[in-house]
Design a protein around this nucleic acid. Structure first.
Lengths: 198, 198
DNA sequence: TTTAAATACGGAGGCTTCCTCCGTTTATCA
DNA sequence: TGATAAACGGAGGAAGCCTCCGTATTTAAA
């Protein structure tokens, strides 16, 4: 058998490509925060100082860019869940986390329109992000169920979908307050009778 | 003062225009039911056997077509609310109506994506449709509040927005059951303590 | 029945946005 | 330094919403 030639060294990404990718992510995040779903990719490329072909080389579709931009946020939500679980009683942790979820939308850390896809969709693209949120929510819910505080015969994600519904459209100026009020209603609605701690 | 000449008779719409409009509405309804928001206007025009200019003459924007298609549905929901109010105790009427609301989505009588705009938006175009639903929901809620069954410090429409959130994305195959379960959770969440009639 | 006027038609073309392809440029390694 | 591979960017295509205007059709009056 012939001996294989020694392979050439594998290259990492070029530094210009790394720099461009970073600029695209930062610019996209800012533009989505300002314009939401109306932000166009040509505009994002221009603002980042790159060509549209470059944007597509790094992020093959619009959704791929969106997913990359918000990957950090979903991770942060997952981490927040772990912290709350370590520091709060079960149902309080659940409530607090859902309010943080609402905060993330309010501070434009998540674009409302994308939220539905992340928590509600079945698209593979958002599988990672969706899984992080699903795992976080399921963990908090399981804890509260095990504690006897709540009983839930509904996919926990459906509660987040409900919150997304309040956030998702050009709702009125008080949508945030409404969403947080809805958190309380949902918690009250799944409370085990006789366990109204409030 | 000169006497005005007798005005000519005012014409109604031509019969071909009436026929085309009806065909457009029927075709649009069927296409939206089948393809949801992916239905394109060129396709709808073609399927209806008319030109794209004709579609736009009757419905100046895509939203105008959507609103016209679903005007009947929102009216039916409003009528259902009146009937339920006449035949059911307050909180039962509210619960039943919200389930009918979910049914409408399930049977494609309402396109989930439009639902958000109807119940959640501030656009003038959907003001009539939105007002019908808002009035229906508010009437049922007011009745239940007056009866002492529930207390609600949340815009009633936010409960529908929450349902729309469950319906709004390509949710799993059991979204309908989830939505109806969510109806019960919401009702339980706004129940006046000590009034758990269930 | 014919004519004139008004209504209505439809499709070519414009605009926007997402996306693709490929000639050119740039970074990297030997 | 030269060769190669990675990366670039922008022209152009496709899709979909929408507009405009020459042509067709309907309707009422003579």
């Amino acid at each position: 058998m012939a001996q294989e030639a020694k392979p050439k060294a594998v290259r990492g990404p070029r530094i210009d490509a790394q720099r461009n990718r970073q600029r695209l992510l930062e610019t996209a995040k800012a533009t989505f925060a300002e314009k939401g779903e109306a932000a166009g990719l040509e505009e994002i490329a221009r603002l980042a100082g790159v060509g549209i072909g470059t944007l597509y080389r790094h992020f093959p579709t619009r959704d791929a860019l969106v997913e990359a931009v918000y990957r950090n946020e979903t991770q942060r939500l997952a981490e927040a869940a772990a912290e709350l679980a370590a520091t709060h009683p079960p149902v309080e942790a659940l409530r607090a986390w859902m309010r943080i979820f609402v905060d993330h939308i309010a501070t434009k850390q998540l674009m409302a329109g994308v939220l539905g896809s992340i928590v509600g969709g079945t698209s593979d693209l958002y599988a990672d992000a969706g899984a992080q949120i699903k795992t976080a929510m399921a963990m908090l819910v399981d804890r509260a169920v095990a504690d006897g505080d709540i009983r839930l015969d509904l996919d926990p994600l459906d509660m987040l979908r409900a919150l997304a519904g309040v956030a998702n459209v050009s709702a009125g100026p008080n949508w945030e307050a409404s969403a947080k009020r809805l958190v309380d209603i949902l918690i009250a609605g799944v409370r085990t009778p006789g366990r109204e701690g409030r």
